[in-house]
Nucleic acid binder design. Structure first.
Length: 112
DNA sequence: GCAATGACTGGTA
DNA sequence: TTACCAGCCATTG
């Protein structure tokens, strides 16, 4: 192999690129959604080729921002309207977590 | 093939 | 809230 992303990487990047505005996904969610490996591999892919996708929408399951680009990420959320917890140092996963599995149906389903 | 590493996760203290 | 532990799986030396 070489510096080019494989099918798995493209899968991950495709999902990340499909995350709607104001929504986020956790590494584990992506891994489970793809049915591929674990969160660490997703993180590895993001670290290598995440520059081509909205990586700021991919965070940890507890809502904490990536170890890098925190300030950048926080800014993105402010513009995208991503629900942040009081303090703005973390994401409100309860509301921001995107369910790509039912996304096609969820577009019409909105809960107050 | 084995050991170490990593943009991780969940539970317990 | 933070800190530590054990499990997780692909990549790399």
């Amino acid at each position: 192999m070489h510096g080019e992303p494989g099918e798995f990487a493209e899968r991950v990047l495709d999902v990340v690129d499909a995350i709607p505005l104001g929504r986020v996904l956790s590494y584990g969610d992506i891994a489970e959604y793809l049915g591929w490996g674990g969160p660490r591999q997703v993180g590895h892919v993001m670290a290598l080729w995440g520059g081509g996708v909205p990586w700021w929408r991919v965070i940890r399951s507890d809502g904490t921002l990536p170890p890098s680009h925190q300030g950048e990420t926080r800014l993105r959320y402010a513009e995208e309207g991503t629900p942040l917890r009081p303090g703005g140092d973390r994401v409100d996963m309860r509301r921001a977590r995107w369910d790509g599995r039912s996304a096609s149906a969820a577009l019409d389903d909105e809960r107050t």
